[in-house]
């Protein structure tokens, strides 16, 4: 069922469109920066953007910082909201269940497909923006000396290419986990309604609510448990030495979201009457 689910997802035009748009936004920003050379001053604008102009290799980090707050969650909401509700409204859910595909197996397959979607989304953004960054801004000052283009960390220390690959890979994994947590919530919402749109909007409502509450001092007690709280913790991965505390805490909270949301989705779906 998992393979079938992946094949179904990869043949949806909507999924490819999401990936395409996710890669298009950083590309647009790169083009604008490259033509104007007007980078935002350090401390203003998106993270890393000020450093990008002098070294294109840092652009993947800047691109991820661009898509994470809004754009990426929207695509995750669309894809995750569609998982069960989409099959339900198309009527294919009943035929899958009488095929038979066990309800738990179906949910697991759906969660795996969402995981693959978010992982590929983050990976595509990273790879495309690396290529775009290098083309637009070059390898940085050291490239001409054959130094492989060392990259400055946020702390000013130069990072070796192997180090950058490690930090970027960790970032991709961390962000994929954050988005998977959101996807698991989408899967839960998708079992509660027969409308993919309603499920997707529910996910977005959660993101907006969380982002609205997060800066309030009054919300300090629940702040660490908000879904959006740790979305930018990965920036610490580009400091030297790496500050692991926030990333570790973020990963635990996000994993908690995956487990709780998936458990609730299963509890609801396993005894649900399928009447569509």
């Amino acid at each position: 069922m998992i393979l079938v689910e992946l094949r179904l997802m990869l043949r949806k035009r909507r999924v490819w469109l999401c990936w395409l748009l996710l890669c298009a936004l950083p590309t647009l920003v790169a083009v604008l920066l490259a033509t104007t050379r007007l980078a935002p001053p350090p401390g203003r604008g998106g993270a890393f953007l000020s450093a990008v102009v002098s070294n294109g290799q840092i652009f993947p980090a800047a691109a991820l910082a661009l898509v994470v707050p809004v754009f990426l969650p929207i695509t995750v909401a669309i894809v995750a909201g569609d998982t069960i509700a989409g099959e339900s409204s198309a009527g294919t859910l009943r035929y899958l269940l009488v095929r038979p595909v066990g309800r738990l197996r179906l949910l697991v397959a759906k969660l795996v497909s969402v995981a693959v979607f978010v992982l590929l989304a983050v990976l595509f953004v990273t790879v495309v923006s690396y290529a775009v960054g290098v083309v637009a801004f070059g390898f940085g000052p050291d490239a001409s000396l054959g130094g492989g283009g060392a990259i400055p960390s946020l702390s000013g220390v130069e990072l070796s290419p192997a180090d950058v690959v490690f930090r970027t890979a960790t970032t991709v994994g961390y962000l994929a986990l954050c988005m998977l947590a959101l996807g698991a919530v989408g899967l839960l919402f998708s079992t509660l309604t027969d409308s993919p749109l309603a499920a997707a909007l529910g996910v977005l409502a959660l993101v907006v609510a969380s982002a609205a509450v997060q800066p309030l001092d009054a919300a300090a007690a629940i702040e660490p448990f908000l879904p959006t709280a740790h979305w930018l913790a990965w920036i610490d991965l580009f400091r030297d030495p790496i500050l692991w505390a926030d990333v570790r805490e973020g990963a635990l909270v996000q994993l908690g979201y995956v487990v709780v949301a998936f458990g609730a989705a299963w509890a609801n779906f396993s005894t649900k009457d399928v009447t569509t």
């Binding site: 069922m1 079938v4 179904l8 198309a90 009527g91 899958l96 009488v98 095929r99 595909v101």
Partner: peptide, 27 residues
């Protein structure tokens, strides 16, 4: 058991043949 419940349903973006193959592979 083979079943047709309240009208047929299929994945609209795939051909009929692909639909049957995937449905069969799902179980």
């Amino acid at each position: 058991v083979g079943a047709l419940v309240e009208g047929p349903a299929a994945w609209g973006h795939l051909s009929g043949r692909a639909n049957l193959r995937l449905l069969d592979a799902a179980g």
